[in-house]
Write a protein that binds this DNA or RNA. Sequence first.
DNA 1: GGCTAAGCGAGACGGTACGTCCTGTCTTCCT
DNA 2: AGGAAGACAGGACGTACCGTCTCGCTTAGCC
Lengths: 203, 203, 203, 203
Amino acid sequence: MSQTETRSRRPEPARPGRPRSARADEAILQATLELLAEEAGVAGISMEAVAARAGVGKSTVYRRWPNKERLIVDALAALKRPLPDPAGGSVRDDLLALAEAMCRERSAKHGRCLWNVLGGADKYPELLARYHREVIEPRREIIRRVLRRGVETGELRADLDVEAAIEMLVGAMTLQSRAPAATAPPEDLAERVVDTLLRGIAA
Amino acid sequence: MSQTETRSRRPEPARPGRPRSARADEAILQATLELLAEEAGVAGISMEAVAARAGVGKSTVYRRWPNKERLIVDALAALKRPLPDPAGGSVRDDLLALAEAMCRERSAKHGRCLWNVLGGADKYPELLARYHREVIEPRREIIRRVLRRGVETGELRADLDVEAAIEMLVGAMTLQSRAPAATAPPEDLAERVVDTLLRGIAA
Amino acid sequence: MSQTETRSRRPEPARPGRPRSARADEAILQATLELLAEEAGVAGISMEAVAARAGVGKSTVYRRWPNKERLIVDALAALKRPLPDPAGGSVRDDLLALAEAMCRERSAKHGRCLWNVLGGADKYPELLARYHREVIEPRREIIRRVLRRGVETGELRADLDVEAAIEMLVGAMTLQSRAPAATAPPEDLAERVVDTLLRGIAA
Amino acid sequence: MSQTETRSRRPEPARPGRPRSARADEAILQATLELLAEEAGVAGISMEAVAARAGVGKSTVYRRWPNKERLIVDALAALKRPLPDPAGGSVRDDLLALAEAMCRERSAKHGRCLWNVLGGADKYPELLARYHREVIEPRREIIRRVLRRGVETGELRADLDVEAAIEMLVGAMTLQSRAPAATAPPEDLAERVVDTLLRGIAA
DNA sequence: GGCTAAGCGAGACGGTACGTCCTGTCTTCCT
DNA sequence: AGGAAGACAGGACGTACCGTCTCGCTTAGCC
């Protein structure tokens, strides 16, 4: 993944030997995500199953990723679809759109993947660090811009603690996903959270 | 653990044979927590390591817990110290005390344990469900009571969405712990979040 | 193998834990020999195939033998049936009996095993050394005794070079086995070699 | 090798494209022999190691030889120096010269190669057959001629069993090489064997 | 005080997955 | 077209745990 990116950035140093198969890359990532969704967690899937489902030899997997964890983090990165950059209506509309996107994601297949993976993360600090850098931060940045713009337009209070607000919004929307599967979040959770955030709870 | 509780509830049905060693129970749970902190995640520790560190045979572990996950959830339950029931000052003071307690917990050893475990949780829904029922919900209930009292005393707005507020507070305080270890949360995060929650962000 | 022998020599120090299964020992050695005969050479068989055919887990094999080579040498040792101690008739009769036994062995299943294995032996000098010590030398000793007795009884010349004679007899009977499978040795090879050895070739 | 021979026999059919590099041929065979001596047995060396040591791509090896075994047999053929055709003195002198040559060969580097290879031979019958035809038989033929001449000159007995005598001589001289490396054969083994063969062991 | 039943440390059992290495084939660019 | 490089599918290697089982030995309560 990262190598592919790196290589494609510069105009191909023309390495000798047979080039790596792009189909294999895709098949492996695809198989990984499927298994990650079906089974569960880093522990729940096996490299051998990944290779088998991808129709690929084990060595083809290990040539690209040094171990299971690194494969999984790259597979997850493949779904890091950025949050929809909000149209730019009222701050409330923008925040609501973002909150609902996060809420939807929670139940989506990849949502589960992320959580399954992040659990065992203390063991792999770089895994977590990279995930933060490449996935989490860009998303917060979008919210941060919406909030800043709100301050400028006067929609939000001038002394707003932007980071605390981000933390609350993101926290509320993602924490819920840890509830038992049965406990579906209420449909209107996004709206209720955004409104509570806007108005505050003080009388 | 659960069996121990069950047994200690009724006055000993007086089973025949040698009774189970209480020292073994403790040693196993202790070893589990130590390994959970040192290593990481459900996947990171092995039953053999637990037994070895506890100075106990593997069968002594398996006699008490049917598998790794059940052992771990019981070990975690051993640290479910309840949040300090707030003294009952102003709502702000109470919320702040709770928030700071959660914040402190995040960096504590058991804090890490919880997160390490919750990751691979999709595979073990009952683990997660039980954890929610026995650990998470009681804690939310404490916050819930503080908020309800605030509404009654008029400190908080009458149309407050209690659940949304809980979600935001808990989410903000716990999500942070997933940042890379280096990224220590700001000292005053609790205060900033509580104030932002109280006042709202709208102008 | 060696461990079993060692243990059974002394009256069991009563080691803790579940004792090793004698059935597994047998099944593994049996499977090894079968595969050694069917397939060929150290390289031709796999530990996984051995375990599978023996109906045993791989770890059960590796608990007893540290690697493929050590397993194979022990399997071969299991067939080191000693040469029939000759009845003690005339020297010619005794030598003929021994030569014919060696000749028969050549075509037998285990004969092939030995050769298949001895090939890659430079890599495992201890394998070869042990095989010599435990299998080859005892056999030569039998021939040596027959020749010495012949000298004493006056059947053989007094100035006989015993070791050279052994080398010639054993060499002639075993070298042949390296001929292509098609080239069956003549029925009467043993007799012809013994007589040539007795009479010499000089006029 | 075989292809090279075939091509060099006829005056080059003038194939299109770049001709094969003679340097590559040599480098590959050289590398094979070196590894065969250092490591051990057909199983002990890898095509990748051969190609790497020869400074050659794997495909360059596989273009010339279809698999490991064929490469090895050709590499060995490169050392099949014929036995010195004996000067034609007394039969004893001739046999002694041949025996000593065989004895010397045993300790030489290629000696080891041959044995290393012959071990795993059941799996590759054609390898063995070819080796017999091209290396072993020519050598026996030399001994055979010496013995026949001895019969004609009256030095050897008229009713000599030529094949049995060959078997004993060759067997005695080559079998020894299977002893552990430490056990060097006695200096005078050749002489003792030849004399024992000549005089017989009977009183 | 002996009997009975369960607990105990130890470790073997059949399995599964790991990550490494090598085989023999293929695909690319360079000469 | 040959050559060097190296990717490809496949499969065995030897290791580490899983959760179960079998040993011989305590350690209790009940007779």
